[in-house]
Design a protein around this nucleic acid. Structure first.
Length: 711
RNA sequence: GGGCUGGUAGCUCAGUUGGUUAGAGUGUUGCGUUGACAUCGCAAAGGUCAGAGGUUCAAAUCCUCUCCAGCCCACCA
């Protein structure tokens, strides 16, 4: 054995050994209850980052631990097409060639993006392997695989047939750069220093001949939207405006008569207590407008420019329109005052463009009847969320949830399983809207006999498909042996940042579609930050690339560094020094191995254990118990510390030093303690433990992976 | 506006249901080690466990309040 442990060669060697032996693929044993984790599918649009390494480390611990108990264990890997994000990433690639997606056209753009993701996916698989993930590659899935697509469409159809998917014109979040609707979750909010403008609207006197001189003043952060105003609202209890309610104001610049109404959504305390109502471009105003049957005038178009309805302002982009509106108001002396004001601006999660609220025809999921069972499942404990504090956050979100906009106007993703009969256009077809929701393209319209159908151009929110991941990956809607055996799965392990995006949706869709909770336990880990707790980002230059450091210090060291001394749900501060420290630990293990294996005495003597022997065996026993206990309770950070502490400071520093003076007697104890230590450590540091175990074990041809967990 | 998390050794963090002299990594200092390992060993220095009050025989741990740091959610324009 070399003086220094060479991780590069060792890691490659054992991974392919495991894979060739088929250890990653569980057999279904009917009488045994399996342990199943569906891997959170990485987005197939780039490299694995340190966050992926975190889930690999934790999930591999769980999986290897259960596998070592002789339980049929499945860890199913996959990749996500990642809708908007991938489209944005690939559009940026095209940009470098001076092209955009419209230059290519839909089909060509899709084809190229597909090739791009396939390349990334292959690369990611290699990266997962390099980090030691013991997942079953024979069952790998991709969200755009044909059978997954069929499953996703089946769920869509079921929801539609149950009246839980509807199409409607509603106010939605629109990204003008991506050219698509977004769900509420895909909008991020940034605090901005802005202004509050106080604008005077003249009151129309009943007698048209009398000159206007009375005004009502409204406060707004978006003066340009006044062009779409169709009312002014005050709180019903606001005495200041009692005599104005019911009267009509004259919208400046547009010369439109708009009513002054009361609505309890208006706070008398804010601004002047009077609000301009723009139903087409503000969610609250949309609601107010609906309640009072106000007109809806869309003045911002999907391209971010003002529409014809904005009169002389039409064609301007939003910010120039704002300047011009303010300018005009100033000229007409209708700007009463301005105040500095901090407000939150909605921006597109993926491309950081300002999001415009506007009215658009989109597809929605009626969420209430899905949310209720999802709440009950966690409240009653059929699904546990760990750490428990996240349950409260989950409840709060589901209790205030609004309908989910699932249609996107991008090209990359699952196209809606919605078809339109072309006979409808000729008025021969009596089907409502000529619309069919169907898993496969219809062949003949039962109403008009037309064989000509076009598919809806929209694509599905990427989370609609990933929300079904725990069962679509196992073969649903078919009652496959895998689905029957492995579903519901055991643990869903992921970062807390996608609790709403993903976990909540999986619970809702899982309960709705399969009638069962998709998993029993949700374990949420924290985000990896740099040594000083700063978020890792390319611009900060503090990114740790897991594959780089794995290359330098070994995958075992990286994995150990990601769990050692962490606690569930808390962010992980990681610096290179910690990884280096864990690399030193691998070298310590290596040298323990050298002493026991390489420098094995020629003969051994069996004698009754002395004080030190009894001590180390007792410490081992305690360690076995506490490590098992910590893993069972998801305290991986603690389990790692316990192992490190025992192996290095008690076994190596104390017992091994002592044993040097009586090697022949101590050798059997050394081997036993080392063997069991390697088993305990294997889920955390699979490569070096396997390598050393192969050297001390006499069971040739088997693997530590399938050895039994010490009791 | 609502909620969450953290404030423990110079730095980064553990510390399960309250129970002896509060732990680890890393850093610092001294000594040692050339037959497991300098990617090492032994030892030392270093903490009024953010602050105040309370419960208790006993509090880093439970309760209340305050101060700092960070995060999430939310339709006050």
């Amino acid at each position: 054995m070399d003086k220094i442990y060479n991780h590069q060669e060792t890691e490659r060697k054992w991974y392919s050994f495991w894979e060739q032996k088929g250890y990653f693929s569980p057999k279904r044993i009917p009488k045994k209850k399996p342990f199943t984790i569906i891997m959170p599918p990485p987005n197939a649009n780039g490299e694995l980052h340190i966050g992926h390494a975190t889930f690999i480390a934790i999930e591999d611990i769980l999986v290897r631990y259960h596998r070592m108990h002789g339980v049929p264990t499945l860890w199913l890997p996959g990749a996500d097409h990642a809708g908007i994000l991938t489209q944005v990433v690939y559009e940026r690639e095209l940009e470098q060639e001076g092209k955009n997606r419209f230059d290519l056209g839909r089909d060509e753009f899709f084809k190229q993006t597909y090739e791009f993701t396939m390349k990334n996916k292959k690369h990611m698989e290699d990266q997962l392997k390099a980090l030691g993930a013991s997942c079953d590659w024979t069952r790998e899935k991709f969200t755009l695989d044909p059978e997954i697509t069929t499953a996703v469409y089946t769920t869509f159809k079921k929801l539609y047939d149950d009246g839980l998917i509807y199409r409607g014109e509603r106010i939605i979040n629109w990204c003008t750069r991506c050219g698509t609707a977004l769900s509420d979750l895909e909008v991020e909010h940034e605090e901005r220093n802005g202004k509050l403008w106080f604008i005077k609207y003249p009151i129309k006197h009943p007698n048209a001949k009398i000159k206007q001189q009375e005004f009502i003043t409204v406060a707004t952060t978006r003066p340009e939207t006044m062009l779409g105003d169709t009312g002014i609202a005050v709180n019903p209890n606001d005495v200041r405006y009692k005599n104005l309610v019911g009267k009509t104001a004259l919208l400046p610049l547009m010369n439109r008569s708009i009513p002054i109404i009361t609505d309890s959504a208006v706070s008398p305390k804010f601004g002047t207590g009077a609000v301009k109502v723009t139903p087409a471009h503000d969610p609250i105003d949309f609601e107010i407008g609906k309640r009072h049957k106000l007109k809806t005038i869309s003045i911002v178009q999907e391209d971010g420019r003002l529409s014809a309805a904005a009169g002389v302002f039409s064609g301007l982009d939003v910010s120039s329109a704002r300047n011009k509106v303010l300018d005009e108001l100033g000229k007409q002396d209708l700007l009463q005052k301005t105040a500095f004001y901090k407000y939150s601006l909605g921006i597109c999660e993926r491309c950081r463009t300002t999001v415009e609220p506007l009215i658009s025809k989109q597809w929605f999921i009626k969420i209430e009847s899905l949310a209720k069972p999802a709440l009950v499942a966690v409240k009653q404990g059929s699904i546990k969320i760990l750490p428990k504090r996240f349950e409260k956050i989950y409840f709060n979100w589901l209790e205030n949830i609004r309908d989910w906009c699932i249609s996107r106007q991008i090209w990359w993703g699952h196209r809606l399983p919605v078809y339109y009969c072309q006979g409808y256009k000729n008025k021969k077809c009596t089907t409502k809207d000529g619309l069919f929701v169907s898993v496969v393209k219809p062949t003949k319209c039962p109403s008009c006999g037309s064989k000509n159908f076009t598919q809806d151009p929209d694509t599905l929110d990427t989370w609609f498909s990933s929300g079904q991941w725990p069962f679509t990956t196992l073969g649903w809607p078919n009652e496959t042996p895998d689905f029957k055996y492995f579903y519901p799965t055991s643990v869903m392990e992921t970062g807390y940042d996608i609790l709403f995006f993903w976990v909540a949706r999986m619970i809702m869709l899982g309960l709705y579609t399969t009638g069962k909770p998709p998993f029993q336990t949700v374990f949420l880990h924290g985000l990896v930050r740099d040594e000083r707790g700063q978020k890792m980002s390319k611009s900060r230059g503090n990114v740790i690339d897991p594959l780089d450091v794995a290359g330098e210090y070994g995958a075992d060291a990286v994995r150990m560094a990601l769990v050692f001394g962490t606690s569930p749900g808390n962010d992980i501060n990681l610096g290179e020094s910690k990884i280096r420290g864990m690399r030193n630990f691998t070298n310590k293990l290596w040298n323990i191995g050298r002493l026991i294996v390489d420098l094995k005495p020629a003969k051994t003597k069996i004698v009754s254990p002395n004080k030190e022997d009894r001590w180390v065996l007792d410490e081992l026993k305690k360690t076995k118990k506490s490590v098992s206990d910590s893993i069972e309770n998801y305290r991986f950070g603690q389990a790692a510390e316990e192992l490190y502490e025992f192996i290095w400071h008690r076994f190596a520093d104390k017992y091994l030093e002592h044993a040097k003076t009586r090697r022949e007697e101590a050798q059997p104890i050394l081997e036993k303690v080392f063997d069991e230590s390697l088993r305990l450590l294997h889920p955390f540091m699979p490569f070096i433990t396997e390598d050393l175990w192969q050297r001390i074990s006499n069971k040739r041809g088997t693997s530590l992976m399938t050895a039994l967990w010490p009791k």
